[in-house]
Design a protein around this nucleic acid. Structure first.
Lengths: 248, 248
DNA sequence: TCGATTATGATTATTTTTGAACAAATAAAA
DNA sequence: TTTTATTTGTTCAAAAATAATCATAATCGA
């Protein structure tokens, strides 16, 4: 039983129990207390735990509040249909913006073999496309852990330097009154994408149509096309407003 | 029973058991302990396992994106020592640059619980730190799939907008003649990091000391400190040149 | 075949790890 | 508050593992 092995065991125990006791560990691993103490001290020096009198505590009780994977896994069938249609709009040579929405994320799988440039603020998108034919441009700036994406002033300025042929965006809601977002940062980024692309596509599953939440940040005229699986009556209104509606 | 054959057996055993013991292997393969040690050391140098006292463990149970793993797994012990020392230089409140080298990447595990800002062009670093206490800033620009990092003109401009208290960088080689890089893009980024940080640390395992390869891009005066496990005579020269040398 | 290189093993010195003893510091109890 | 028990840091010593050195055996190319 060497240090590396003990370290693993201690950290695992710490992860499940939240705290550990020196006597307890010493007995369990059949090592002396002083050795246990040395192990804990070393782990504490590496910032892997908090040292307490007689034991140690987990250093980082904060949990990830927002699970991108789970969100992306919701409504998969509808989203995939939407994304397949979106991918059909993309041709080799395109330069496209992709935002950090969970629907847009699922577009990745359909464009891996296209010879295009993707400009994005979403780290999952980068991860998904990094070993594909797609050439990537990452938007810089402050990273928002909850959305796993880059947001903020610098990000907006970064976007403003580029021009894309198409932008594929998500929103939190779209109604006859306009587009809605969950945060100002998201709204800013979405607007920047739309402003710098020739054609702006909105990807929305049915749950977003007619929904109004938190912040109205733009009118319907911001987008050029809407790809959705909804059959809502709102779609007719959107068409009348000049939006190209692609139903899947 | 030659080395290749033993290597296969050891790795297979390691894969099933997770760890191996020198005495045990020596007995099983009917070779001396010293030979066993030599085998394990050689495998460790290739990054195929993690050497411990009395045996070895499977390399890095923590998941690292894709092909990055191979490079990052080489010389793990030395790199970890270097990074532990590097982490010791960082205090809460620091704003630090981290580049896309494999050594610098291993610094992540030691800084997850520090309250600092990290500005980086390395996507693996972002991945590793995204659910930590560290607040992240991603450098924007064109993504280089091979290095899994952002490079180029826009990236350099992005860096120029920020000032960090410390920069932790890798190079491809350092000799009495200066610093060497594998590509112009890498060199540019490294220089930009150094130029915009108060104190510049170079993280180099022994294989980089005295090595001159491809492109000399800067003199020794670019860096303020060198953290290394090397014992090369060059270190004295570096010290005379005004570099703070931290030996681990 | 010879000589040279490489792999292996034995021996010894060095380093690392571990545990014990005891004084100092800290938390808990009276 | 003072007292008591526990925890911790320090120093030292023993044991284990390792590195270094040298000698021997195996392998290979000419």
């Amino acid at each position: 039983m060497n240090f590396q092995k003990r370290k693993q065991i201690i950290l695992k125990k710490l992860d499940t129990d939240g705290e550990v006791d020196i006597k307890q560990i010493a007995a369990e691993l059949k090592i002396s207390e002083i050795t246990t103490r040395r192990d804990l001290n070393q782990l504490a020096a590496d910032g892997l735990l908090y040292r307490t009198h007689g034991g140690a505590m987990k250093v980082n009780p904060l949990e990830i509040p927002h699970d991108f994977v789970n969100k992306a896994a919701k409504n998969v069938e509808a989203k995939d249909k939407i994304c397949r249609a979106a991918a059909g709009q993309i041709i080799d040579g395109d330069i496209i913006f992709m935002d950090c929405g969970s629907t847009v994320f699922r577009l990745c799988q359909f464009i891996k073999n296209k010879k295009i440039k993707v400009i994005t603020n979403s780290i999952p998108v980068v991860y998904e496309l990094q070993n594909s034919l797609v050439s990537l441009n990452i938007i810089g700036g402050e990273f928002d852990a909850e959305r796993q994406a880059v947001h903020g002033k610098i990000a907006n300025e970064h976007i403003a330097r580029y021009r894309a042929s198409k932008a594929f965006l998500g929103v939190d809601g779209i109604s006859r009154n306009g587009l809605f977002a969950n945060s100002e940062l998201e709204a800013d980024i979405t607007q920047a994408f739309a402003a710098n692309s020739t054609k702006t596509y909105l990807l929305c599953d049915e749950s977003k149509i007619g929904k109004e939440s938190y912040l109205k940040f733009a009118g319907l005229d911001m987008i050029d096309a809407l790809i959705t699986n909804s059959t809502s009556a709102d779609l007719d209104y959107f068409k009348e407003s000049g939006i190209e509606v692609i139903e899947v």
